[in-house]
Amino acid sequence: PEDEKKAKEALKRANGDEDKAKEILRKLGVDPDRAEELLRRLR
């Protein structure tokens, strides 16, 4: 869904750096736990 698209985009923008991607997602208003879960799934 929408969050998943955001997560993929964030990872791309962060050049695969998960911590940076998490930060980006947090700024986009995605719940930190949700962000973590999404990134884990994309790994």
Results as ranks from 00 to 15, higher is better:
residue 38 L to K: 00
residue 27 K to L: 15
residue 17 D to M: 04
residue 39 L to C: 02
residue 17 D to K: 04
residue 31 D to H: 12
residue 34 R to A: 10
residue 33 D to L: 13
residue 20 K to R: 10
residue 9 E to V: 08
residue 5 K to V: 13
residue 7 A to H: 02
residue 31 D to G: 10
residue 7 A to W: 04
residue 30 V to L: 11
residue 30 V to D: 00
residue 1 P to H: 14
residue 7 A to I: 08
residue 20 K to F: 08
residue 25 L to S: 00
residue 4 E to P: 04
residue 38 L to W: 05
residue 11 L to M: 09
residue 37 E to P: 02
residue 9 E to W: 15
residue 13 R to A: 15
residue 20 K to G: 06
residue 23 E to L: 08
residue 12 K to A: 12
residue 40 R to T: 09
residue 14 A to N: 02
residue 39 L to Q: 00
residue 21 A to F: 05
residue 9 E to H: 09
residue 42 L to Q: 04
residue 14 A to S: 07
residue 10 A to Y: 02
residue 33 D to N: 10
residue 22 K to P: 00
residue 13 R to I: 14
residue 1 P to D: 15
residue 31 D to M: 09
residue 12 K to I: 13
residue 21 A to P: 00
residue 11 L to D: 01
residue 37 E to N: 05
residue 38 L to Q: 03
residue 1 P to A: 14
residue 35 A to Q: 03
residue 7 A to N: 01
residue 1 P to T: 14
residue 8 K to Y: 13
residue 15 N to S: 07
residue 6 K to N: 09
residue 27 K to M: 14
residue 10 A to S: 04
residue 43 R to S: 08
residue 14 A to T: 06
residue 37 E to R: 05
residue 19 D to R: 13
residue 29 G to Q: 03
residue 3 D to G: 06
residue 40 R to N: 12
residue 33 D to W: 12
residue 8 K to F: 12
residue 30 V to H: 03
residue 5 K to D: 12
residue 13 R to H: 11
residue 41 R to L: 14
residue 31 D to V: 05
residue 25 L to W: 01
residue 2 E to H: 09
residue 14 A to K: 01
residue 3 D to H: 05
residue 38 L to E: 02
residue 29 G to Y: 02
residue 40 R to W: 07
residue 41 R to P: 05
residue 24 I to T: 04
residue 7 A to K: 01
residue 40 R to I: 11
residue 10 A to E: 02
residue 37 E to K: 06
residue 2 E to S: 14
residue 8 K to G: 05
residue 4 E to Q: 08
residue 33 D to E: 13
residue 23 E to P: 00
residue 7 A to G: 03
residue 33 D to A: 14
residue 26 R to H: 12
residue 43 R to H: 07
residue 13 R to K: 13
residue 12 K to Q: 13
residue 4 E to V: 13
residue 26 R to L: 15
residue 39 L to M: 08
residue 12 K to T: 09
residue 5 K to T: 11
residue 4 E to C: 06
residue 3 D to I: 08
residue 6 K to S: 09
residue 9 E to L: 12
residue 18 E to Q: 09
residue 40 R to L: 09
residue 12 K to N: 09
residue 32 P to T: 09
residue 5 K to W: 15
residue 34 R to K: 12
residue 31 D to S: 13
residue 36 E to M: 08
residue 28 L to H: 06
residue 10 A to D: 01
residue 16 G to H: 05
residue 37 E to H: 06
residue 23 E to I: 08
residue 12 K to G: 06
residue 23 E to S: 06
residue 16 G to R: 03
residue 23 E to W: 06
residue 43 R to T: 07
residue 41 R to W: 13
residue 36 E to Q: 07
residue 43 R to K: 11
residue 35 A to T: 04
residue 18 E to P: 11
residue 25 L to H: 00
residue 27 K to E: 15
residue 8 K to L: 14
residue 34 R to F: 10
residue 3 D to T: 05
residue 23 E to T: 06
residue 19 D to S: 12
residue 14 A to P: 01
residue 6 K to I: 15
residue 21 A to H: 00
residue 15 N to G: 13
residue 40 R to Q: 12
residue 17 D to R: 05
residue 39 L to I: 14
residue 13 R to G: 06
residue 1 P to L: 15
residue 38 L to I: 10
residue 17 D to E: 04
residue 21 A to R: 01
residue 12 K to D: 11
residue 43 R to Q: 10
residue 6 K to C: 07
residue 33 D to H: 12
residue 33 D to S: 11
residue 43 R to W: 07
residue 37 E to W: 06
residue 16 G to L: 03
residue 31 D to Q: 09
residue 38 L to S: 03
residue 14 A to W: 03
residue 40 R to G: 08
residue 31 D to K: 09
residue 16 G to S: 03
residue 41 R to S: 12
residue 16 G to I: 01
residue 2 E to I: 09
residue 36 E to S: 08
residue 13 R to C: 08
residue 27 K to T: 13
residue 29 G to E: 02
residue 41 R to H: 11
residue 39 L to G: 00
residue 33 D to V: 13
residue 4 E to W: 15
residue 23 E to D: 10
residue 15 N to F: 09
residue 32 P to E: 12
residue 8 K to N: 05
residue 21 A to L: 04
residue 17 D to F: 04
residue 36 E to R: 06
residue 41 R to E: 10
residue 34 R to P: 01
residue 25 L to V: 01
residue 35 A to M: 06
residue 40 R to P: 01
residue 32 P to Q: 08
residue 25 L to P: 00
residue 24 I to G: 02
residue 6 K to R: 13
residue 42 L to W: 05
residue 29 G to H: 03
residue 24 I to L: 09
residue 9 E to T: 07
residue 30 V to K: 01
residue 3 D to N: 05
residue 26 R to V: 15
residue 14 A to G: 03
residue 1 P to Q: 14
residue 29 G to V: 02
residue 8 K to P: 01
residue 3 D to P: 04
residue 14 A to M: 03
residue 8 K to S: 09
residue 11 L to G: 00
residue 18 E to K: 10
residue 30 V to M: 15
residue 23 E to N: 06
residue 42 L to N: 04
residue 31 D to I: 03
residue 31 D to T: 10
residue 6 K to G: 05
residue 10 A to P: 01
residue 1 P to E: 15
residue 40 R to S: 10
residue 12 K to H: 11
residue 12 K to Y: 12
residue 4 E to H: 09
residue 2 E to Q: 09
residue 28 L to P: 00
residue 5 K to N: 11
residue 2 E to D: 15
residue 26 R to K: 12
residue 5 K to A: 14
residue 33 D to M: 12
residue 7 A to S: 03
residue 26 R to T: 14
residue 15 N to D: 09
residue 13 R to P: 01
residue 23 E to K: 07
residue 16 G to D: 04
residue 2 E to L: 10
residue 1 P to S: 15
residue 25 L to R: 00
residue 11 L to P: 00
residue 27 K to G: 13
residue 24 I to Q: 04
residue 34 R to E: 08
residue 11 L to Q: 02
residue 12 K to F: 12
residue 43 R to A: 09
residue 25 L to K: 00
residue 18 E to Y: 15
residue 13 R to Q: 15
residue 12 K to W: 13
residue 36 E to F: 05
residue 10 A to K: 00
residue 23 E to A: 09
residue 23 E to M: 08
residue 10 A to G: 01
residue 26 R to G: 09
residue 35 A to L: 07
residue 28 L to F: 07
residue 16 G to K: 03
residue 18 E to G: 06
residue 20 K to N: 05
residue 25 L to E: 00
residue 18 E to F: 15
residue 26 R to E: 12
residue 9 E to F: 11
residue 3 D to W: 15
residue 20 K to A: 12
residue 34 R to D: 07
residue 19 D to N: 13
residue 8 K to I: 15
residue 28 L to R: 04
residue 14 A to H: 03
